[in-house]
Amino acid sequence: MMKATSFLTSLLFLLSLNTAQGAPGWKALTNDEVHDPTSPAIGILQEPATALALLPSDTSGNRVSWIRALRERYIQPRTNIYPETEIKVLDMDIIMELTGEMPLVRFPHKPHTEWLDCDNCHDKIFIEKVGANPVNMFAILAGEYCGRCHGAVAFPLTECNRCHSVDRATFTGQPGAQPEKKVSELIN
């Protein structure tokens, strides 16, 4: 009996590993529960898997590492339409310390400003002053602050350690705004 049980256990374990490492489940437009399968657009619109399978993969969200896709030039999305628009990229981290027992949060401006303009967040979502924003996970989970994008179009809120990434015990610097680094490479 024990043999049968352990056999069953290992089988289930292997099965689960197999499932966990399976190909990303990019739903086809006909069964994404958003598009009308009878719409004439089906067959004309690009299928997500066709485009996304070519990009560096991630383990959550829409299974694409958009940061790597941009930095490693898999994609070169336009920065502006109007020629006079100023492209601003800031390489400055914010360390947030009011994180309870979780590791400190490091907010890197660089990957955010590579995609977004300053005025997308300041001052609409975040007041441009350290300590002025009562950010907390309840608000984030309800779609405020970081939750405006994270969980919708950026990596989801189940990826705790991507933000809570600074060990409290070994962090010796000052929380808040860190020294600004020169943007060595402006990606265009």
């Binding site: 999305p77 336009r78 502006n80």
Partner: peptide, 8 residues
């Protein structure tokens, strides 16, 4: 977003 950054 493959073609345009969010800021556009």
């Amino acid at each position: 977003r493959i073609r345009f950054r969010c800021k556009v």
